[in-house]
């Protein structure tokens, strides 16, 4: 548990399955996109496109994508 929350994680091997749960896929350049509209890229909380290599997770109703870089996770650590 962290901060009272039960922690569930996923590793790289099931990234695509996790994205599928939330109606997302990956385009030819590796950016996470809406499955129903592959031209629409998802955005992180600060408005950045998210490549599958940067995919750190999801929060809040499936529309907020977390990037796995130090700065993004530092911001998350304060929530």
């Amino acid at each position: 548990m962290v901060n009272g929350e039960c922690i569930v994680t996923f590793d790289d091997s099931v990234c695509m399955e996790v994205l599928d749960v939330f109606g997302k896929s990956v385009d030819s350049e590796g950016f996470i996109v809406e499955k129903e509209n592959m031209a629409q890229k998802v955005l992180s909380e600060d408005g950045q496109e998210v490549n599958i290599k940067e995919f750190g997770g999801i929060k809040k109703g499936s529309e907020v994508f977390i990037k796995n870089d130090l700065v993004s996770l530092m911001r998350l650590s304060k929530e």
């Binding site: 569930v8 994680t9 590793d11 996790v18 749960v21 929060k59 109703g61 499936s62 796995n68 650590s77």
Partner: peptide, 29 residues
């Protein structure tokens, strides 16, 4: 898959394993 979706919709985060590892260190920091 439905349970994972419900988890996030209830307000919890779903994190990639290595990202969680770093996040845990940053919370400690």
């Amino acid at each position: 898959k439905l349970i994972l979706k419900e988890k996030v919709e209830e307000g919890s985060k779903l994190l990639e394993e290595k990202s969680f590892g770093l996040l845990r260190e940053l919370i400690n920091f």
